[in-house]
Design a protein around this nucleic acid. Structure first.
Lengths: 224, 224
DNA sequence: CTTCGCATTGAACGCCTGTTTAGCCTGCTC
DNA sequence: GAGCAGGCTAAACAGGCGTTCAATGCGAAG
């Protein structure tokens, strides 16, 4: 109904918004190799109009990037900070309306590029805030390399979600995508909690060995 | 010298092997969107010959998949089982000769498909063996959901490496790729050891809470 | 020496890509 | 009502894609 293209009576935001929305969906489904004509068909317009509005395909993608980023930022504001950023994303995608956004975001991380970096930094920031709050509340252990730990957790959370996403292809079916993410959370939550609570090794000998060999643990994990 | 294409005096394995090797390098560098003519140029042949030998582009990719998988399997046999499969991959890629193979593998995981699944299963198998050995030796804690824990660790290891790989593009420079992976290991090792030794939370209350809500933790993490 | 077979080539094909261009058609302004 | 502006379309363009095909050259077998 929304993507009909023929009967947009209210026309929310004009045709360019409609194109952008269709592009987010199509890019998320098929990746960024999707053709302009396909997107144009989805939006009920022509390929030329896309170029007319966005200059080029890259312009369209940047518009999508900005749109998705802004929308997810707004949504995240309302949600409480979650234990795991991957779980947070999955929970957001559970709201049917936002599934395409999350899918677009994952495709974007998969493909690399500016939004991928922004997303990673964003998740690192989230993790940092969560860890700091936990440390202050006394429920999270302090680390000898806090920044590196933050980065590790963010990469692990985003990365395992990405691997799951890559390995469980939905055929553009939002319901399947949502169900898959739900299954991901269900599969991963318990072992994650277990790992975070009791670690993996029975003693700290390995850690102390590392501390001997590298007296100065990496202070940060930032680069570029 | 090896990829010269003009002066293959010994011709190891024939031209089809040469094409395959060039394809592994080019696919690893540019992704699977790389054109047949580009690969043909790299190998010093024509696009038609590739199709003649491999039937189609997909046939070429499958040949690359099989080749890379066989080669990395052979290499891994020689190496001792490492703590982390990501570290193992990085260490293999450190041998200059194998960097293109690892890059191809990561591209493959990034793109999804059969080799991605095989790789994931492979890493899960490695992790399982490592964890079982550790449990038997009494250095690794037992889990209430061993299979799910194994899967989590494999996904985290592969996923964080993949995110790093995506976020740190080398321009097809093997040295940069190798250096990047080395930096990855260096960045991630300490916080990983710390996490595995002491966990993240100061007590087990969160775990016990989960055990109350879900009296039967997920026995396995397998699907499909 | 001839003949066969196979690796290999270069050109062509049809399709799809992003982009450009010319023109239409609507609605607003004077 | 005339004229202009701009959203929008259809067609064409140049280039890349994977694939096909006829023809070449070479090396081995008879």
């Amino acid at each position: 109904m929304r993507t009909g293209g023929v009967s947009q009576t209210v026309d929310p935001g004009g045709a360019s918004a409609q194109i952008r929305d269709a592009a987010v969906v199509r890019f998320g489904r098929d990746g960024f190799g999707a053709g302009l004509r396909t997107i144009a068909d989805d939006a009920g317009v022509t390929a030329g109009l896309i170029v007319h509005h966005f200059g080029s395909k890259e312009g369209l993608r940047k518009a999508c990037d900005a749109h998705v980023l802004a929308l997810l930022r707004a949504v995240k504001e309302e949600a409480l900070t979650d234990t795991d950023t991957g779980s947070l994303l999955a929970r957001i995608a559970d709201i049917e309306e936002f599934a395409p956004l999350v899918r677009y975001l994952l495709r974007s991380v998969q493909a690399g590029g500016e939004l991928a970096e922004t997303t990673a930094e964003h998740m690192i920031g989230d993790a940092e805030a969560y860890l700091a709050a936990g440390e202050a509340a006394g429920v999270i252990r302090t680390s000898r390399a806090p920044a590196a730990r933050t980065r590790l957790l963010a990469y692990q959370g985003l990365g395992s979600l990405l691997v799951w996403f890559t390995l469980h292809p939905d055929d553009g079916d939002d319901a399947r995508f949502t169900a898959s993410l739900r299954e991901y959370v269900q599969t991963i939550t318990f072992p994650a909690v277990e790992l975070f609570c009791q670690g993996l090794f029975v003693d700290r000998s390995m850690l102390e060995e590392h501390l001997l060999h590298v007296p100065d643990p990496p202070a940060d994990g930032a680069d570029a």
